[in-house]
Write a protein that binds this DNA or RNA. Structure first.
Ligand SMILES: [Zn+2]
Ligand SMILES: [Zn+2]
Ligand SMILES: [Zn+2]
Ligand SMILES: [Zn+2]
Lengths: 135, 135
DNA sequence: GACCGACATGACAATCGTTGTCAACTGGGT
DNA sequence: ACCCAGTTGACAACGATTGTCATGTCGGTC
């Protein structure tokens, strides 16, 4: 996994205090978090940062491929994920996310697309459930 | 596929003119559509209906399992889909959706969940691309 | 066919996540 | 230290969706 500094540099972003604190709080964090929640957490932890900045930082990092996004009832949640293609196993109780590989899924994708004459631009395969700790 | 009347009855909804026109316009329609767009279309076609009603009808039908929902840049799109479990091949240009089955995907789901000690509550596997007609 | 109560409608207001604005601030190269 | 393009954040604005509630209608009953 890339370091926080490298991530910012790669994304073409300056290493500001706010961005570093966002990346740091996302570091090794197992669950996906929304902009609003992360903002509240940072503020609560004494890290001064504006909500707009949190939104912009998360969006930029996700666009650069350092974060994956999840839809939590119409609200966007983010998680620091590996940069190689993968899928997700998401706990609906604690929002923990496990990264999965799936060669069989990749095969299914290209086969289905070919069969229907589609040119693939992307795909997504996520599993939702309750993790062991939450059960 | 269920008829429009049956769908409403099953969902515990009265067969009003508005609901029937929503279901009718979704009938055999290959693409997913948003509430706002469907509302505009119906109005344009001379079908008087309120935006709130369109939202409520689509939400109710989706909740009853007659429609599948898709996220189109944070906006919700709906499509009449078969009631047996399936996955999707979505054209990002015309929003056409093909329904897919995927036994290998189902296998992958239960295997991955078991391996991580998750109890599965659901899963989703969609492919995005450009359909033959749009290329 | 008229009647009636529960359900449905729709114009409007309100909510809420997210994005735009812009004056003040700052990272990092010279 | 200087400079300025990039960044911040309080605030306003936006847009999709949901709540409100007076009015309208479905569908079973008489
Ligand atoms: Zn991920
Ligand atoms: Zn994949
Ligand atoms: Zn479907
Ligand atoms: Zn499946």
């Amino acid at each position: 996994m890339t370091t926080t500094d490298e991530a910012l540099r790669t994304a073409g972003l300056r290493a500001t205090r706010q961005r570093l604190s966002v990346l740091e709080s996302l570091r090794e964090r197992p669950d996906a978090v929304t902009a609003q929640d992360l903002h509240a957490e940072l503020r609560g932890a004494g890290e001064p940062i504006g909500l707009t900045t949190v939104y912009r930082t998360l969006t930029a990092l996700a666009g650069a491929g350092f974060l994956d996004t999840f839809d939590r009832d119409g609200e966007q949640a983010f998680r620091r994920c590996g940069e190689v293609h993968h899928h997700h196993l998401v706990c609906e109780t604690c929002n923990r996310v496990e990264e999965l590989s799936g060669d069989d899924v990749e095969r299914w994708v290209s086969q289905a697309a070919t069969r229907h004459g589609f040119e693939v631009t992307g795909h997504r395969a996520d599993i939702f459930g309750i993790c062991a700790a939450c059960r």
